[in-house]
Write a protein that binds this DNA or RNA. Structure first.
Length: 424
RNA sequence: GGCGGGUUGCCCGAGCGGCCAAUGGGAGGGGACUGUAAAUCCCCCGGCUCUGCCUUCGAAGGUUCAAAUCCUUCACCCGCCA
């Protein structure tokens, strides 16, 4: 028996490991309930979470019922998987706040009002919090063998590195309990997650078998790798977040547009909802003329539209086009310029006050960390005003340098832009 | 609780009384080449009122003309034992 959905996921390179695949394919022939957990470790999810989140969306589009589980409880404990150090605990208020924010984000990618297979939101704090320590130890703990727990990658790696606290050691038990609860509550028979979650997921399967004599499935998604070996979803400034306050839509679009050539087709397969044919077409176009970056652009557009909005995407792309365009900045009309610059970090200068020197101005925009850094950039010929290189440290811009009488575009290097606004 | 090891710039990691803002690597930044890509080459990479000055080597005291380097106390981390 073949499952169209599984075949698609395989083609996209989205399957790392699964339990008995034939049985899983058979189960997926009927509408199935599945879940993925997201722990609140920050105020927002990032592009790394998007991989697995979009897989969940694919399942819903294929007629299955997804449960988005927010780890209100597990987030208080900390998952040792993939971490070589114990993490510091966040306060309950902080975590509760993050739970709410992440719920809001999750609701954007799944349909919770669909007539047939509407998505379900869950929070594991709901069943974990009423549990007493004694109940936990007697009813749940008894089913776990410490020997097995120790052999999990997430634990053994930590034992060899910096050690692990009893708190984080217990994480896998909590996650197993989640699966059991969702199995009972919603007949959820599939848990997915990143490949680093395999151990935690399997712990849940065992628990379901022992307690309910039930059978359930596991499916993991490979960790997304980049051709150059660096971590996906990280830039010099940190993670690429889904929250527009934390990563501007402009920066978000740029992140995808700047994808390494070697990764772009792979990323399209993972993130795009385009058909196989369309992706193959883009791959061809890319190989024929990589400089045109058609595939990059499509990737950036689709994701920016999905995560932010199609309108935002249009705005942000137009801004980039204006700012990076070969055309004269001075020829832009004020509306275009205002729109383009609204996406950039900015600083203001009062008309009444003396104009700051070039170095001071660069430092003020925040494209560099200090005045020393600003000086360095100028010395190294990396500072541009309205696309023209300015190499004099003591240069002071005049009002005539402000386009439309109010904006100056400051650039550091090839692509780090900022706006200076002249105000009254 | 006992014994031992450790804490250096964004990260890893040298230095063990003056030549230390501190070797080296990685990350990061600028330039050249290009396509807002990769690879490669060159340069930079604590701060400032910048040929000089100021603040850094877990924290606080002390010894010394002079301390990241020596002494004392404290804090934290790791390991072994109880």
């Amino acid at each position: 028996m073949k499952s169209e959905l599984l075949e698609d996921l395989r083609w996209r390179g989205l399957i790392a490991q699964s339990t008995d695949e034939a049985a899983l394919a058979e189960s997926l022939a009927k509408p199935t309930t599945l879940y993925i957990g997201f722990d609140p470790t920050a105020p927002s999810m990032h592009v790394g979470n998007l991989v697995v989140l979009l897989v969940m969306r694919r399942f819903q589009l294929a007629g299955h019922t997804p449960i988005a589980l927010v780890g209100g409880a597990t987030g208080l404990v900390g998952d040792p998987s993939g971490k070589n150090e114990e993490r510091t605990l966040n306060t309950e208020e902080t975590v509760a706040n993050w739970v709410e924010r992440i719920k809001t984000q999750l609701s954007q990618y799944l349909d919770f009002n669909a007539p047939k297979n509407a998505a379900i939101m869950a929070n594991n704090l709901d069943w974990t919090s009423p549990l007493s320590a004694i109940e936990f130890l007697r009813d749940i703990g008894k089913h776990f063998s410490v020997n097995q727990m120790l052999s999990k990658d997430s634990v053994s790696a930590r034992l060899e590195a910096s050690g692990i606290s009893y708190t984080e050691f217990s994480y896998q038990v909590l996650q197993a309990l989640d699966y059991l609860e969702l199995y009972r509550l919603h007949n959820c028979t599939l848990q997915m997650g990143g490949s680093d979650q395999w151990g935690n997921i399997v712990a849940g399967l065992d628990l379901i078998r022992k307690v309910e004599q039930g059978s359930a499935h596991a499916l993991t998604v490979p960790l997304l790798t980049k051709a150059d070996g660096t971590k996906f979803g990280k830039t010099a400034g940190g993670s690429v977040w889904l929250d527009p306050e934390m990563t501007s839509p402009y920066a978000f679009f740029q992140y995808w547009l700047n994808t390494d050539d070697k990764d772009v087709v792979n990323f399209l397969k993972v993130f795009s909802f385009k058909s196989h044919e369309e992706i193959i077409e883009l791959e061809k176009a890319h190989n024929e003329n990589p400089g045109a970056r058609t595939a990059h652009r499509e990737l950036a557009r689709e994701l920016t539209s999905l995560v932010h909005s199609p309108e935002t995407c249009v705005r942000v792309e137009a801004a980039a086009k204006a700012l990076f365009g070969q055309g004269e900045l001075a020829e832009l009309d004020e509306a275009t310029l205002t729109a383009a610059l609204s996406e950039l970090p900015r600083t203001t200068v009062k008309r009444s006050e003396p104009m700051p020197t070039w170095v001071d101005l660069i430092a003020a925009t925040g494209v560099v960390d200090s005045k020393s850094a600003a000086r360095r950039i100028v010395k190294e010929n990396g500072a541009y005003l309205n696309n023209a290189k300015v190499t004099a440290e003591d240069f002071a811009p005049s009002e005539s340098d402000f386009l439309c009488g109010k904006y100056a575009v400051l650039r550091k290097g090839k692509r780090d832009l900022a706006a200076v606004e002249l105000v009254d």
